[in-house]
Amino acid sequence: MTNKPKLRALIVDDESLARTNIRYSLQEFDHWQVVGEVNRGDQVIQSVQTNTPDVVFLDIKMPGLDGLTVCQQLQSLDSPPFIVFVTAYDVHAVEAFELCALDYLLKPFDDVRFHKTIQRVEQLMFNNQQQTQQVAQLKAVADDHLKKLDTLIVRSVGRIQLIDVDKINWLSTAGNYVELHLDDQVILHRVSLSHLEKHLPVNDFIRVHRTAMIRLSLVSEFLTLADGQYAAVLKTGDKVNVSQTYKEKLLLQLGIE
């Protein structure tokens, strides 16, 4: 049990003895930490924002605001804590669970019942933490993969080509395909330009038109054409249209004011 991360608890009850009972009960669990105690319902939100508890042990009948109202307010926070109601009144149990209470302890409770509450809280808390960590790890792996994308797999009838991203000079749309413009050939890839925009190295390629992306390092000229249109000339000799929508971003990337 000692290898578990600390769980932070806030105790809310207008009776000093009730707060003491919960505090002493939590002391049996070395991975629990009481970060605050409050005796009025209208002080809970501020205490939660200050002490950032994982769990609030919350009485229902209190001065200021009752516990059910406090619970509703807590649910509006970006990261609300879990709620365990601790009360002498069982008439509010259904409403409490409808407000997403994790458990409902009736006073006076014994050690066995309190241990069940702790087990329920820990099971949910640690499962949530593991799921959050797994999602974060998967996202990190995916982000890292996208940042390091260096090869495109292009499939065609009877053929699979591995295209080195470093060899792509620019890209343009062609119906349901994207044309990959290399030095010596143009390769059709069945994918959207928007999809590639999300996956290609952001420091290497820039969107210049709804139909085109170019390698930034290959730009040799920026042209203002007679008809009010714009174009980028690449070192390969290719001239790619630049729309008004993307002009400013391109000029900024080129260091042109």
Rank of each mutant, 00 (worst) to 15 (best):
V186P: 05
Y177K: 10
K148P: 07
L124R: 11
L105P: 02
T132V: 03
I168Y: 12
V70M: 05
Y104E: 07
F114N: 11
V86I: 13
E98D: 13
D111I: 10
H145Q: 02
Q134A: 09
L188W: 07
A93V: 04
L124A: 07
G67W: 00
L124K: 11
N128P: 00
Q75N: 15
S79C: 03
C71G: 11
D103A: 11
G175D: 04
F126D: 06
L102H: 03
M125V: 12
L74C: 06
L106H: 07
W170N: 10
D150F: 01
P81R: 02
V141I: 14
H189Y: 08
E122D: 13
D90S: 05
I118Q: 09
K61S: 15
L193W: 05
L138A: 00
Q73W: 12
R113A: 02
D144W: 00
S192R: 08
L193D: 05
A101T: 02
L180E: 08
M62N: 08
R190C: 01
E95S: 08
L77S: 02
I168V: 14
T87R: 00
D166L: 14
Q75R: 15
I60A: 15
L180H: 09
L193S: 04
V186H: 05
A96G: 13
H195P: 02
D103W: 07
A96N: 12
L182E: 14
K167T: 14
G64V: 10
L182T: 14
L196P: 02
Y177T: 12
L105K: 04
W170G: 09
I83T: 08
L68Y: 14
L77F: 09
H195Y: 05
S194A: 07
T173Y: 03
S172D: 15
S194V: 02
A96K: 12
Q129L: 14
A136I: 01
S192G: 11
L152A: 01
N169M: 03
S79L: 06
D90G: 01
D143S: 07
C100Q: 15
A136C: 06
Q119P: 01
F126W: 01
V70L: 09
G67E: 08
L146D: 12
G158T: 02
F126R: 03
V70T: 09
T132R: 05
V91M: 06
Q185E: 15
S156G: 11
S172H: 05
D184E: 15
F114T: 10
H92L: 03
V91L: 04
K61E: 15
L105N: 06
V94H: 04
L146E: 13
A136N: 10
E98A: 07
L68M: 15
I118H: 06
A136S: 06
L182C: 13
V84E: 11
K198I: 01
S76R: 11
L162K: 11
I153R: 04
Q119R: 13
Q129A: 14
V86D: 12
R120I: 00
D110S: 10
F126G: 00
K148N: 10
F109C: 04
L171N: 10
R190P: 04
D144K: 02
T117G: 01
D166E: 15
E197H: 05
P63A: 09
S76M: 08
I160M: 14
